[in-house]
């Protein structure tokens, strides 16, 4: 195993007085790709939100350690600056803020430095090409009027531009057609290669995994990890279901 990047220990999470996660343990090493599978409504997305630090999700026990540092009580933006990233299942529309200016100011906030416009534009253009995104999306208001597929591509675009150390992808493949899944999947493997990035891929289908190198698979049922295995576990689940 590579050196540990993320260690989730005995994590318990509550949302509005309802216990969702019970004693979740996951350890992700540098450059590793983990898959989190399980039936609908079992707490997979809750884990993603809790790791990112959403104030709606109350951590009632356990800890989150990222790069050896306990971030259980840290604010969302501090986690982002440390290198955590969450790709949203339903990305939020922000009128009046263009996709490109948003990415640029996010980059500037993370680094605390001004970004050179020319280099930024060049990189943005190349990355959008990779994702088969029409260039005009760069100047459109963030996610406003984007189709489901374009929203997901815009998330992966942010992933590739921000280059975090660990990306949590929450149902990034849901609602996508075959071609879009391929494009998004190509974007994700680019992230693996370019940044030696680690991934926690939350999904309940396996289409997105076909062309990706997977290190570990976890199965979550009723807020607990019930099984952890290698990449082969995905095939097993495909044949026999979650139980």
């Amino acid at each position: 195993m590579n050196s540990e990047l993320l260690t989730v220990k005995d994590l318990n999470v509550r949302v509005e007085d309802k216990e969702i996660l019970n004693d979740v343990n996951i350890t992700i090493g540098e450059g590793e790709t983990h898959v989190l599978m399980g039936p609908n409504g079992t707490g997979k997305s809750t884990l993603g939100y809790a790791l990112m630090g959403s104030p709606k999700y109350e951590i009632t026990g356990g800890s989150i350690v990222f790069e050896g540092k306990d971030i259980t009580g840290e604010s969302v933006n501090e986690r982002a600056k440390s290198g955590l990233f969450l790709s949203f299942q339903n990305p939020i529309e922000v009128p009046g803020v263009s996709l490109s200016s948003f990415i640029r100011s996010a980059l500037e906030q993370r680094s605390g430095q001004r970004i050179k416009l020319w280099e930024f534009k060049k990189k943005l253009k190349a990355t959008m090409e990779l994702l088969n995104m029409d260039e005009e999306y760069a100047d459109r208001d963030l996610n406003v009027g984007f189709s489901g597929g374009e929203k997901k591509k815009a998330e992966i675009l942010q992933l590739l531009m921000l280059e975090p150390k660990l990306a949590i992808l929450d149902e990034t493949d849901s609602g996508l057609d075959v071609d879009a899944v391929k494009t998004v999947s190509a974007g994700i493997s680019e992230y693996q290669k370019r940044c030696n990035g680690s991934l926690l891929i939350i999904t309940h289908s396996t289409r997105i995994l076909e062309s990706l190198k997977v290190d570990k698979t976890h199965v979550m049922v009723d807020g607990s990890i019930v099984k952890t295995g290698g990449p082969g576990l995905v095939d097993e689940i495909n044949e026999h279901g979650f139980v």
Partner: peptide, 9 residues
């Protein structure tokens, strides 16, 4: 939350 998850205060 969405904007903060990209590193903004």
């Amino acid at each position: 939350f969405y904007l903060m998850s990209r590193g903004m205060s």
